[in-house]
Amino acid sequence: MNHSRLALLVLCAAPLAACSATAATNASQALDTRPFPRLAAQVADGPVLVEARYYLDHKRTFGAELPREARVLPVALKLGLAPGAAGSARIDPDQAGARLYLPDGTVLASKFQAAVWTEFKSVNDLVAANALQSRVLPPWSAAGESFVYFVLGEAGEVFVRRGELTLGAGEDARSFALADALIAFELELDGQVRTLFVGLEVGNGAPRGN
């Protein structure tokens, strides 16, 4: 009786042991294939805080789809000084050299707001009114969003749909989530030129603080 129980136990245990050995092997080969966290869309660099956002429904702000009507991508920047921060920071859009890096290494330049043009005067006025202006950075609590405009080139070169940007066309087209893009620009902090980098948040809503 004892022998038959022992035999039964061995028969049951053998596959379990084999299973357990396989599991151990699999565990030892387990791979961490999780994507690296996205580029942060809010950044603190010393006393300067910056946030960047692309509004999917920016037509509510400008009255037009700017990628289609003006071949630019409007990105809202919020810039301010951290609470209690000492120091003085200033941004001048003419000197900031704002640029947008896509995940494949393509880099889009920004355009002065005066050069952003549509056939609708009301849209052009809103583009100018919402553009980032030369200014000393306010405290973060008083900061609002203003826009920089990235050049999309000729129609057919770059296509924007919802939160995705496509370069090229046909078989060679390649698409990227705008949330994987990176923005850089220069500003002056205590008299020194500094380059700031920030990821891009993509979302709905209207610009805050305007």
């Binding site: 050299g97 640029r99 890096y101 995940p103 494949d104 330049a109």
Partner: peptide, 20 residues
Amino acid sequence: LREPRASGVPGPSAVAHSMA
């Protein structure tokens, strides 16, 4: 790889390579 500069003359871009 190149990136636009405020001066108007594109320059080499280490950041573009890192993105790629």
